[in-house]
């Protein structure tokens, strides 16, 4: 009976192998931590909400920049090159050149503006008609307006420009992309700033989760003391808190992805209207799967860091005595 049972099992506790024990412990601890969070839905939701909003901020700003880049990239593509041809080039030669350039894959359309057309236009628009009549010769060259094809990237645009410039018939190529470049530089600076802001917000999340875990440790002081008293290692005692932090960060990250995507859904219609006004076609840049994973992973990592620091710091203070 009872006593003999005792006698037949004086053997040390058999563990079920180091790996499966480790794995099994983590599975059961993670489920238990999850249940604890669900058991206190309001406070859990508050913390997840704070983390979610905090993570959503940099993610949303990043998307804003990404969308601005994508739209303004369209502007750059839509720019035409004005290729001023050499003065001595006659009209048939200019037409042949226009046809030649028009065959290039990276060129969409080539329009030839002859010197006469240009002069007529200028006369009409400038009001210097009488002054122009004083000139014996037409001072204007033939001009090709080259519209690059839509497939171009900034790099191939640069190549195209260079090649147009190096043509023997070309006097000068003009394209006003400087302001676009400047705009992109500004967006780059903002994107860098978002990185720094994200780091600071990440620190805030570590503090938020750390504080939550600290309170949790304080509330479960007795439990920690008793488990330590009967031989629990620091790792064993820490484990449920680490999982709590991990879950909070993970759910916060998921909420952030949800919030950002929802915000884009709300912006889609007004953006389409705006694009319509500019005769453009705007494809919104959404969070890619990788970026969404990054946000969630970032949240989970911060949760783990926050709970680890808090648990390590406050758990040492709790020793049976």
């Amino acid at each position: 009976m009872a006593v003999s049972r005792h006698r037949d099992a004086v053997a040390p506790v058999r563990t079920s192998g180091p790996v499966s024990t480790w794995f099994g412990r983590h599975v059961s601890t993670s489920v238990a931590s999850l249940k604890k969070l669900v058991a206190a839905p309001f406070s859990s939701f508050m913390i997840v909400g704070v983390i979610g909003v905090t993570l959503a901020l940099p993610a949303a700003l990043h998307l804003l920049v990404a969308n601005a880049l994508s739209i303004s990239g369209g502007w750059e593509d839509a720019l035409d090159f004005s290729v001023f041809l050499a003065d001595d080039l006659d009209l048939p030669a200019a037409e042949r050149l226009a046809a030649l350039i028009g065959q290039r894959a990276d060129v969409g359309e080539v329009t030839l503006i002859s010197a006469e057309q240009a002069l007529a236009e200028f006369r009409e628009q400038s009001g210097f008609g009488a002054a122009l009549d004083q000139l014996g010769d037409n001072p204007l060259p033939h001009t090709l307006v080259v519209r690059p094809a839509a497939v171009n990237t900034p790099e191939t645009m640069a190549v195209l420009r260079q090649e147009l410039e190096s043509l023997p018939e070309t006097a000068a190529v003009q394209v006003d992309t400087d302001w676009v470049a400047r705009f992109h530089a500004i967006l780059d600076v903002i994107d860098q700033g978002i990185g720094i802001g994200a780091a600071l917000l990440g620190l805030a999340i570590v503090v938020i989760i750390g504080n939550t875990i600290r309170l949790d440790v304080e509330n479960r002081r007795d439990e920690i003391e008793v488990t330590k008293l009967i031989g629990a290692s620091d790792g064993f005692v820490r484990r449920p808190f680490l999982w709590s932090g991990l879950w909070l960060g993970l759910f916060g990250g998921m909420l952030a992805v949800g919030l950002v995507s929802w915000g884009l859904v709300l912006l889609e219609a007004p953006m389409a209207r705006l694009a319509g006004l500019y005769h453009g076609n705007v494809d919104l840049v959404w969070l890619s799967l990788g970026e969404a994973g990054l946000v969630i992973g970032f949240g989970a990592t911060l949760g783990l860091i926050g709970s680890w620091t808090a648990a390590a710091r406050h758990m040492r203070a709790i020793e049976p005595g």
């Binding site: 506790v13 058999r14 563990t15 079920s16 024990t21 099994g24 412990r25 488990t227 009967i230 031989g231 629990a232 290692s233 064993f236």
Partner: peptide, 13 residues
């Protein structure tokens, strides 16, 4: 069960 859980015993044990 707590000491057994701490020691890493399997559920059946």
């Amino acid at each position: 069960a707590l000491p057994l859980v701490i020691a890493g015993a399997g559920p059946r044990e």
